[in-house]
């Protein structure tokens, strides 16, 4: 039981980090970013490529910069230029972008799985009560917590965060008050890309690196974000952890074959009870 819980929390924490990136973009742009996972995938490949000439920390820095720039560039250069686009049109734009990213990765790096060098080992383990936890899992948990805390500080304690909150509450008013909304959007995309990349780097040592390795984790992160409430940052964290633990317990005690089906069934029930997600803002609509 403890082991299953621990596994669930560890995977769930990573779902949370992915979900956070999705939520950040959704809060500001009202847009589901389907390229979130593939952006992270490209960044992780960059780490892989640059870790030989630059060393691991240098490569991570380069990749984070590149992912941030790429995310911001897409938001600035594509999404905001297409003014007529419907929301669904924008979603399809991100779908197209995700195809471009994974397609480029396929051309540049090939489809075969590559081991991802990470300073923490996934096989070295520590005992924790009756359960074992690997160095990597422990590290992932710590890094995920740090990222969550950092994001909290960014949103709640800084001027940029204040601007982001203002924008997400009322874009029009924010613009009228003189907030540089386009730069704000690009910044949000950048932070989201950074979060995605972090999650990708923590996943890659376990799932190995190939152009499609972020597809399933992205879908899980997306699900977690919706479960928690798409406009809620704490909701993303709760949603991710809940999804992780739920899957782990289902896999352990109910059925390995129907894990996703069971999880989704439960999520649908939860959403029917709270249609705006667990911690989402209850939207009041005026007609």
């Amino acid at each position: 039981m403890l082991q299953y819980l621990l596994n669930g929390i560890a995977t769930g924490a990573l779902y949370s980090v992915i979900a956070l990136g999705i939520v950040l973009v959704y809060r500001t742009s009202r847009l589901l970013n389907f390229a979130h996972g593939d952006l992270a995938m490209v960044a992780v490949f960059l780490v892989w490529s640059f870790s030989r000439p630059l060393g691991f920390p240098g490569a991570v820095a380069v990749a984070l910069l590149a992912a941030t720039a790429l995310g911001a560039a897409f938001s600035f250069g594509v999404l905001q230029q297409v003014k007529e686009a419907t929301l669904l049109g924008q979603v399809v734009l991100t779908l197209g972008f995700s195809q471009v990213l994974s397609g480029a990765a396929l051309v540049v790096w090939g489809a075969d799985s590559k081991p991802f060098p990470f300073p923490l080992s996934s096989v070295v383990t520590y005992r924790l009560g009756g359960a074992v936890i690997s160095q990597l899992t422990l590290g992932s948990l710590v890094i995920a917590l740090v990222l969550m805390a950092g994001l909290y500080l960014l949103i709640q304690q800084t001027r940029v965060g204040l601007a982001m909150r203002a924008y997400s509450q009322d874009p029009e008013a924010a613009r009228l008050l003189g907030l540089p909304t386009r730069r704000l959007l690009a910044f949000t995309w950048g932070v989201a890309a950074l979060l995605g990349t972090a999650a990708g780097m923590l996943l890659a040592p376990v799932t190995f690196l190939h152009p499609y390795f972020m597809l399933t984790p992205f879908l899980k992160g997306f699900t977690a974000a919706v479960l928690g409430g798409l406009d809620s940052v704490p909701g993303a964290i709760v949603g991710g952890l809940l999804l992780g633990v739920m899957e782990s317990l289902f896999a352990g005690y109910v059925s390995l074959r129907f894990v996703s089906t069971l999880s989704f069934a439960l999520i649908v029930v939860m959403l029917l009870v709270r249609p705006e997600g667990l911690l989402g803002r209850v939207f009041q609509r005026r007609v």
């Binding site: 082991q3 299953y4 596994n7 995977t11 996943l203 376990v206 799932t207 390795f213 597809l215 399933t216 984790p217 899957e247 782990s248 896999a251 352990g252 390995l256 074959r257 894990v259």
Partner: peptide
């Protein structure tokens, strides 16, 4: 008999089974 799907990215539960 422990099956997995190609889309699975977390095999911790499989290993425990």
């Amino acid at each position: 008999e422990v099956p997995y799907e190609v889309s699975d990215t977390d095999l911790a539960a499989h290993a425990q089974r």
